[in-house]
Nucleic acid binder design. Structure first.
Length: 265
DNA sequence: GCGACAG
DNA sequence: ATCTTGTCGC
């Protein structure tokens, strides 16, 4: 019992239990193994077309949580038509989460439920399978170059794009005064600037996703799509700041929680 | 002590 | 992620 108290109260790295350290080491190995299967360029014809001709379905995924409960969530997968952005398919399900949220390892908490949702769609109605999946979180803009959008992409084989609402400050990227000035310099919807890590590699783009938004979204490659195509597509599916497929997944997963837990609203 | 820390 | 209402502005 003394052990349990120590673990929950101490915060410094050296106090991490041996078990926690082993989990992280295992997760890092898993990220590195899956990373060898990552494809960071356009693989589909529609991706390089000027108007995305041939693109008909875009998927969005999200998880919503219940306050005060860290093991229950609603996972949702929606499929929207392109270019009309009408909802063609919706799947919201309550799920039990086993892994905690650890910065840098979001996929280990969320990706299992999302893969299941994709498999359900494959069984139920494969003709509605999205041609690209928009993921709430980062792709290669990540400590080890393998965020949740890459993870889901490699596991499903689907082209994926990571969209984060906040800058993950990795390898030289900082939300400092220079970054804020670059944000202020964005003029019209579609304007963007590259996020360059210390080595010089471009990890993603900050994008003013719609005309009215002050704060950009952070776009990075998930799987089977180039950064250029990804940024162009994200701009094309934003009615508001958050791309419509993710926004619909978010709205609908929250509504589903209110439906199942009315006492929380 | 303070900032960071995708969701 | 969530805690949280109204309010100022177009």
């Amino acid at each position: 019992m003394a052990e349990g108290n120590r673990e929950s109260q101490e915060q410094s790295d050296e106090s991490l239990s041996q078990e926690e350290q082993e989990i992280r080491a295992r997760w890092e190995r898993e990220q590195n193994q899956l990373k060898s299967k990552l494809i960071e360029y356009d693989t589909e014809d529609w991706q390089e077309d000027a108007s995305f001709a041939g693109l008909q379905r875009i998927g969005g995924v999200d998880l919503s949580y219940i306050k005060g409960d860290d093991s229950t969530a609603c996972a949702s997968l929606v499929v929207l038509s392109y270019p009309d952005l009408e909802v063609l398919y919706e799947d919201c399900r309550m799920v039990s989460l086993t892994a905690p949220y650890v910065a840098g390892f979001l996929a280990f908490r969320e990706v299992h439920s999302l893969v299941e949702a994709v498999e359900t769609l494959q069984d139920k109605d494969p003709s509605l399978m999205p041609q690209v999946l928009l993921v709430d979180g980062n792709g290669v803009l990540h400590h080890r170059g393998f965020g949740v959008a890459c993870h889901l992409g490699v596991l499903t084989g689907l082209p994926c794009i990571g969209i984060a609402k906040n800058l993950l400050q990795v390898s030289g990227l900082e939300n400092d005064e220079l970054h804020k000035e670059q944000i202020r310099s964005l003029q019209m919807g579609g304007d963007s600037f590259p996020l360059v890590e210390s080595s010089g590699r471009v990890l993603g783009m900050a994008l003013k996703s719609c005309e009215k938004s002050t704060k950009p979204v952070y776009v990075s490659v998930g799987h089977k799509m180039s950064l250029e195509s990804a940024v162009r597509l994200i701009h094309c599916c934003c009615k508001y700041r958050v791309p419509e497929p993710i926004r619909q997944a978010d709205i609908r997963s929250r509504a589903h929680i209110r439906q199942n837990f009315p006492h929380l609203s």
